[in-house]
C-alpha cells in the first residue's frame, strides 16, 4: 500500500466519520464544527486528486465563508439542543434511513462492483491532471470557454444577495 493510499484512506475515513457524526449531533454547533472538519478533509482529498485550486477554494469558500455564516446564524438564533435523537426517530424515519441505505447499496453496486470497462480503465489519473488542477489552467478555461457562465454567476450572486437582504430584513405580515 503506497503512502498515497494511506493518506487517502485517512482522509476518507475522517470525511465519512465526521459526516456521520455531523448528522447525529444534537447540538447544531457541534454539527457545524464537524462539517468544517469534513470539508477540510475533503480539501485534502482534492489535493490527492491534484486539484489544488479546488482544494484552496474549498477551504476558503466552504470552511471559511459558508460555515462561518452558518455558525453565525446558529449563534444568532441561540438554538438549544434538539434533544436526544432517539426521541425524534419514528418508524417513518427508520423507513427513510432504510431507503437511503438501499440507494447507497445500489450506487456502490453500480459504481464499485459493476463499474464496467469505462471505470475499470480509470486506474490511473490522466497525465495532464497535474496541469489541469493548477490555478493558471483553471483560469485559462474559466475565462475563455466558460466566461459567459462565469458572468451569469455574478448575476446569481447578486440576486441571492438581494434575496437574502429582503428575506432577513422584512417582517412577514
Amino acid at each position: 500500500m503506497s503512502s498515497e493510499m494511506i493518506v487517502f484512506f485517512i482522509l476518507a475515513a475522517v470525511a465519512a466519520i465526521s459526516g456521520i457524526l455531523m448528522i447525529t449531533r444534537a447540538n447544531p454547533v457541534n454539527s457545524a464544527l464537524l462539517l468544517i472538519l469534513n470539508f477540510i478533509s475533503l480539501a485534502g482529498i482534492y489535493l490527492t486528486l491534484n486539484a489544488q485550486f479546488v482544494a484552496i477554494i474549498q477551504i476558503l469558500v466552504y470552511a471559511g465563508a459558508i460555515m462561518v455564516l452558518v455558525l453565525f446564524v446558529i449563534m444568532l438564533l441561540n438554538l438549544q439542543d434538539e434533544g436526544p435523537l432517539r426521541e425524534e426517530l419514528s418508524k417513518r424515519h427508520y423507513a427513510n434511513v432504510f431507503f437511503a441505505l438501499a440507494v447507497l447499496a445500489l450506487i456502490i453496486e453500480v459504481l464499485g462492483w459493476q463499474g464496467g470497462e469505462t471505470l475499470n480503465a480509470m486506474q490511473q489519473m490522466a497525465p495532464n491532471a497535474v496541469q489541469n488542477g493548477m490555478v493558471q489552467n483553471i483560469g485559462d478555461v474559466l475565462f475563455t470557454s466558460y466566461v459567459f457562465p462565469f458572468e451569469v454567476t455574478s448575476i446569481l450572486l447578486l440576486a441571492a444577495m438581494i434575496g437574502a437582504v429582503v428575506l432577513a430584513k422584512k417582517r412577514f405580515p
Binding site: N96, F99, A100, A102, V103, L106, I107, V110
Partner: peptide, 9 residues
Amino acid sequence: VVGTLIVLG
C-alpha cells in the same frame, strides 16, 4: 429517495 431507488433498481 424511493424514486431514485426504483430508477437505480
